[in-house]
Amino acid sequence: MSNPGRETDHMAACRPAAAAAAAEEPRDGLHEQWFVACTKSELRPDKPLGVKILGLGIVLFRQRNGDVTALIDQCVHRGTRLSAGKLADDCLVCPYHGWRYDAQGRVVHIPTIDGVQPGPTPADYPFRQRQLSVREQDGLIWVYPGTGDASARQAFRMPFHADQQWQSYFMVNSFDGDIGMLAQNFMDVPHTVFVHDGIFRSSRGSAMEATVALKAESVEVTYHDEHDKIGMMEWLTNPRREPLVHTDRFFAPNVTRCDYLWGSQSGFLIVSQITPIDARRSRVYTYIAYRFALPRWLLRALRPLLHLYTHVVIQQDVRIMRAHRQGLDNAPGFKPHNVRADVVHVGIERLLAAIRQGEALPEAERGEKLMRFEL
């Protein structure tokens, strides 16, 4: 026979665990941002998905009405990973003792209390796990890991995602490196002639100039070399022999966008969304969008070739960032030696430092500089 008094005592005894689960971790300004948790296709309708952002475990699941929920990936009962559980009646069921969580993170059923008897209403349980703000747009699912007002910031929009004249797809890869290391790599032209020699860009022994604009929340680089080429097939990218307009942008804290445009009819874009897993590793959602002056049937036929090409290039970056991370580990306390071609790197570091402090980049540090290097 059930004993209501003992049930209440049991609930009270569990409150410290719930409070501990809700305790806030030390945070900096990076937490108050939207980060990509997964692509739309990665979140199956019948199974929870566990991800990690800034060291915080998060579980995602989709309800029957299509809405997505994000909770801290930890049962408030014994701390078990909820993403190892299952879905039942729009609830997330812990795999250890069957505690059920609704879409707001409230515990709505505890088998060891309720048994086969009707239990209290969900509002009577004192337990809940923290729910995180979620946004689904442009084929991606975003999570806001901070505790501030998520609506005060916008998630980055994928350029041309809904434009029928452009084709696009995502690639997802894990990298060794934090946001700063990866953003610097994706914005770094000098490395391309060594890491991507012969496939993306080759050394030509001539100077390249660019204007680097450091702004309040971005670094924007405009290259002044209309004769520059990237290693894709020119008959595909630039059949009309138009001059290349190349711009790279870093949108603080975690997005890079590289545009290669040939006139008004051809273009190739690479947008990298960097989601920090922890201090050493990141997941990168690379968005490729392209428009070429060829019939659509031919572009569809060439799509597998483009996928293969971009995959090879990205894997070269994955390998060089692994070597970079290993080199930094070989002798802790390393300090970089910057040269004129590293203006972009320095700008990214300054923006990230300001964001971590929850501050705007000082006006005195903003402005434009000319960058010149041999390619």
Results as ranks from 00 to 15, higher is better:
348 I>T: 00
311 H>V: 08
373 F>Q: 05
343 V>D: 05
335 K>A: 14
327 G>F: 06
370 L>R: 13
334 F>A: 13
337 H>I: 12
359 E>T: 15
330 N>Q: 13
322 R>G: 13
334 F>G: 12
350 R>H: 06
314 I>R: 14
311 H>A: 14
315 Q>K: 15
340 R>G: 14
312 V>G: 08
332 P>F: 06
311 H>L: 10
353 A>K: 02
366 R>A: 03
357 Q>S: 03
311 H>W: 15
358 G>V: 06
330 N>P: 01
360 A>I: 06
346 V>D: 02
368 E>W: 04
357 Q>P: 03
321 M>A: 06
342 D>R: 07
374 E>F: 08
320 I>N: 03
332 P>R: 09
312 V>P: 09
331 A>Y: 09
314 I>S: 10
357 Q>V: 04
356 R>C: 01
373 F>D: 02
358 G>I: 04
334 F>Q: 11
323 A>K: 13
331 A>M: 10
336 P>G: 11
323 A>C: 08
325 R>I: 01
369 K>H: 13
355 I>E: 00
342 D>L: 05
374 E>Q: 14
327 G>I: 01
336 P>C: 10
325 R>D: 03
325 R>M: 05
374 E>M: 12
314 I>W: 10
311 H>C: 07
336 P>K: 12
358 G>R: 07
324 H>D: 08
328 L>D: 02
314 I>F: 10
317 D>C: 05
339 V>C: 10
362 P>Q: 12
338 N>I: 05
313 V>E: 05
365 E>F: 13
338 N>M: 11
354 A>Y: 04
363 E>F: 04
336 P>D: 02
370 L>Y: 06
312 V>C: 12
326 Q>F: 03
313 V>W: 06
314 I>G: 04
316 Q>G: 02
311 H>M: 11
358 G>Q: 07
318 V>C: 07
373 F>R: 09
346 V>G: 03
360 A>W: 05
344 V>M: 08
360 A>G: 07
317 D>L: 01
364 A>W: 12
372 R>D: 08
331 A>Q: 09
319 R>C: 07
